[in-house]
Amino acid sequence: MFSQLDWHVKSGELWQIKGDNGAGKTSLMRAIAGLAPQSLEGRLSVLADFLFLGHKAGIKSDFTAIENLRLHLGDAQNGDERQLNDALATVGLADYRDEYAYRLSAGQQRRIALARLFLVDAPLWLLDEPLTAIDVDGVAIIEACIDRQVRNGGSVIYTSHQPLKLQLSTSTLHLRGKGQSPYVS
């Protein structure tokens, strides 16, 4: 996909990965998350606990919003019921707590996945296209989320086709496709 990448992410840093379609953004994200060790030659060490939000968010349409948080297969440290409710309220789904996910819109389902950002205490966030299907209010929620995470000393790596409005210094990793080495700005 791409070659020669020497890249370090420290805590408190915000990174955006940019590149055309097929440049390897998602592959890189998945490799960092440990989902594609085969496709990677070289050394990759992820020293922090992390949270991964991919294209597919793991939302079950036959579960209610709250059940989707409660029975989520990912995070080891599930919050108690009150924390789950708070997280749903923060992403604006308080009224839809017991609604089946198949009755919710794509954007609302995506918000359930976003609610996990408030439940897991991970120093590193990997957000692959977090804005997909999200409306303006939702974008604001994500921006606030990322802001809080970075200010608290955590780091965020994200990919996005839409620009995020953030009051933080963002570093960018440009992937340039086949055979070309990426550069940082």
Binding site: K56, G58, K60, G74, D75, A76
Partner: peptide, 22 residues
């Protein structure tokens, strides 16, 4: 099938939980 299609398995693997027990 379902857990593969909607990404739940991905989340399981990423979480570092025991795949044996899962």
């Amino acid at each position: 099938r379902g857990d593969y299609d909607d990404g739940a398995l991905e989340q399981l693997l990423v979480s570092g939980e025991s795949l044996y027990l899962a």
